[in-house]
Amino acid sequence: MSNGSTFPPPRRLRGTTVLVVLAAVLVAAGAGYLVLRWLRGDGGEPPRAAHPAPSGTRHEPDKKDGKGGTGDGSHDSGPGSHKGNPHGSLKGKTVVLDPGHNPRNRDHTREIARLVDIGNERKECDTTGTSTNTGYAEASFTLDVAHRARKLLERQGARVVLTQDGDHPYGPCVDERAATGNKKRADAAVSIHADGSAAGNRGFHVILPARVTAGAADTSAIVAPSRQLGERLAGRFLAVTESAPSNYIGDGTGLDVRSDLGGLNLSTVPKVFIECGNMRDPKDAAHLTDAEWRQKAARGITEGITDFLTS
């Protein structure tokens, strides 16, 4: 070749080569350092974690089972949709669900009229409960919602006990219902009901125990934790079902305090009642008789319990 070649002198070529190689090494080293930091968990951009859903989060509608309902919730995200409560978060916890009344109470009116001691007075063993104007019984509603909530809670790892599962000829009596939660040393107990007020009275409310110290009743130790449970339950029930708090009880808070319920007076574990709606109001009744809405009610109850037990 002639001296007019376009190739640079050898010395310049070697210097450029060294610089290129050095730059490549530095880039590789920098990338390796970032990867190392990510693996060690002290930097970088890790996979985005799920954050707990705020109390006002809207949930996707439940998928139907082809019959207008949601079946057992197998297609529903359940508590898993409340992202702060992963599966297994209730492992080791015991929850007692108390489906109000009994579908067969109406056939045992004499037995359920028997008076039992609730500490500060004596009241009927149980009552028949109410129904919608079309005949859908409160006792059927409460048992259905309890079954749905039980599946969701068990999916979270909880041990769930029902005070009755359609396996009693009547009742059980209100003092026996309280005793179930006490004997099982429940971490939380919820009695599920629907109200029977006048048409136009709408919405849900949660009943909290008053401070009662009389006879066999002493709620001193459970008043505060029961209020916490009730507040969590009301908040999640509102968010999931989008039902409004009662417009006739609780001054818009969705909370009511009572001292005349044996299921609360005789409880030694945190316990509340939830009246999911008014069966005698046509608009509320349309929700209560809808399987998809009942699945949402069960999910709201489940998330409220889960929030209480994991907070």
Rank of each mutant, 00 (worst) to 15 (best):
P10R: 15
P10M: 15
V25M: 05
V27P: 06
A28W: 01
A28L: 08
Y33K: 11
L34S: 10
V35L: 07
L36A: 10
R40K: 14
P46I: 04
H51D: 14
P54R: 11
H59W: 12
P61D: 09
K64P: 11
K64L: 14
K67F: 12
G68P: 01
D72L: 05
G73N: 13
D76S: 12
H82D: 13
G84C: 06
N85Y: 11
P86H: 07
L90T: 04
L90A: 03
L90Y: 07
G92P: 04
V95M: 09
D98P: 08
H101M: 11
R104P: 03
R104W: 07
D107F: 10
H108N: 12
L115M: 04
V116Q: 10
V116I: 10
I118V: 07
T127W: 01
V145W: 06
A146Q: 12
A146G: 13
H147I: 02
H147W: 06
A158T: 06
R159E: 01
V160S: 11
Q164V: 02
G166P: 09
G166A: 05
P169S: 14
P169K: 13
P172Q: 04
C173K: 08
V174Y: 09
E176V: 10
A179P: 00
N182V: 09
D187E: 06
A189F: 13
A189P: 03
A199V: 06
G200F: 01
L208Q: 06
A216Y: 02
I222S: 04
V223I: 10
R227V: 00
Q228L: 13
L229D: 02
E231T: 06
A234Y: 03
G235C: 00
E242M: 05
P245W: 11
S246P: 03
N247A: 10
I249Q: 10
I249R: 05
L255S: 06
L261A: 12
L264K: 05
F273D: 05
I274L: 02
G277I: 11
M279N: 08
D281M: 02
K283P: 04
T289Y: 06
D290W: 01
D290R: 01
A291Q: 03
Q295H: 09
A297I: 08
A297S: 08
T302I: 06
E303D: 15
G304A: 10
I305F: 07
F308V: 12
F308A: 14
F308P: 14
S311T: 11
